[in-house]
Design a binder for these strands. Sequence first.
RNA 1: GAGGGCGUAGCUCAGCUGGUAGAGCAACGGCCUUUUAAGCCGUUGGUCCUGGGUUCGAGUCCCAGCGCCCUCACCA
Length: 486
Amino acid sequence: MTEQNQDIDKLQQQRQDKLAKIKQLSIDPYGSRLDDIESASAVRAKFDSTRQDQTALCAGRIVLFRDIGKLIFITLRDSSGTIQLGLSRKLLESQWDLIKLLDLGDVIGAEGTLGLTKTGELTIWTTKVIMLSKCVLQPPEKFHGLADIELRYRQRYVDLWANPEVMDRFKKRIAMVATIRNFLQAKGFFEVETPMMQSLAGGAAAKPFITHHNALDIDLYLRIAPELFLKRLLVGGMEKVFEVNRNFRNEGLSPRHNPEFTMMEIYQAYADYNIMMDLSEEMICLLVEKHCEGTTLQYGEMRIDYSRPWRRASYRDLVKEYAGCDIQDIAAIRSKAKSLGIEEAKLDDDIVVNEVFEATVEKNLINPTFVIDYPARLCPLTKRSKTNPDYAERFELYIGAMEVANAYTELNDPQVQYDNFVSQIKGSNEDENTFRNLDEDFINALKYGMPPAGGLGVGIDRLVMLLTGATSIKDVILFPLLKPEK
RNA sequence: GAGGGCGUAGCUCAGCUGGUAGAGCAACGGCCUUUUAAGCCGUUGGUCCUGGGUUCGAGUCCCAGCGCCCUCACCA
């Protein structure tokens, strides 16, 4: 039985009728394996206008259809781009019945001879059309594409071919992640995978998602960070490791936040946060060089200059510069906080300082800026500065007023780490609903001795946003979270 | 979670201070062998997001709900 019913709309019914007619021609409307296909861009690249004997076989979706009677021009799209097919009745008399049943949106293969039209358009003068998949739904309008934002996210499978810039952006993301992997592997980093389901969600201050394992009858948390497992690998003797994978945080959505997002974390034994700074600068500049046009990129209203060297400024100096007060001067900081409308009275000193930082400094950090040396109390997993123990050897990288990376000289003293965890748990309040657990096994690992190390976390989605000009994180995630319909 | 905006044909969009639903693309029929969002002639197509209410009359006004977007909050 079919799922067809009276509710099926007229446009769909017309296409179903064509599908039936294709079957009557003894042709499978859903095709089969097709070997030796060339991409549209590969065919464009190989075409030699001095030759008349070149052939090509392409496969893709019909996105434009121009029927001139005994001649039909089709624009076929694959992930590499488009190529024009010329279907002449003279050449394709035996297949003309099938050709008259083709619709916009159908997936077909076409084989023929390459040539140029009068107007110089590269064309496959087709000698054989291969039906690969019938499209029984009406595709979006050919010129505007799919514009409805909600539909674009819900039906990304249409968005990707209806709006070529969407395919291009995701291809860029894919290429950038590949560049990152190659870059790190060439430096001798091991790419590893650590648990996404954890019995303790640690390594960050965030609300986790909870799930349940039936056989063991235990609750598990989707990880909020891979940090504590990657450091265990340092203890295990892997000196250089990285992981690119999803983190999950049970928080609100925004143009910069998706509940699952891709984080890359890198750990390097015998290094420190200065080495991580150099590494991140080198890596992101490589991405700009390989995947972007020029070193100054437009992002929304901002023009961001990625040329090296990037600014490195201390947290304290930046607060002085943009808030006009010294973070050591708590009275001044509190009065500044009040003037910014921050309810500072019930907050700890260091939290107030950070509120002031976020309210005054962040929005000014347009060009890549390393904010270095954070107040130590904000950094429970970070080693303190030897020269001034009030500060931790930590930096955050800001680009386009957005935090894209966070790095430390990793704390490797098990006793200090233990004390930090305990005081952090004490400091957390109930309505915060943030899970803070003491990971005793992690402390145990540190007791075996973790080499001094630098660690770096990079928000891949945000980096891709910046480098592809996407102002919403949903535009760099293939299937962003949306509420289910109805 | 709070505030603001949006939801009309398969798609992209009009629709004024309330008067009975429109265009382009797509589709269908016709013409056309070098088009480029092909063109020309003709035709079809609507639970105006859902449910209430006000009104002689609601796409339009009011209330509630659903979804999306923006801003804010939590955070990366």
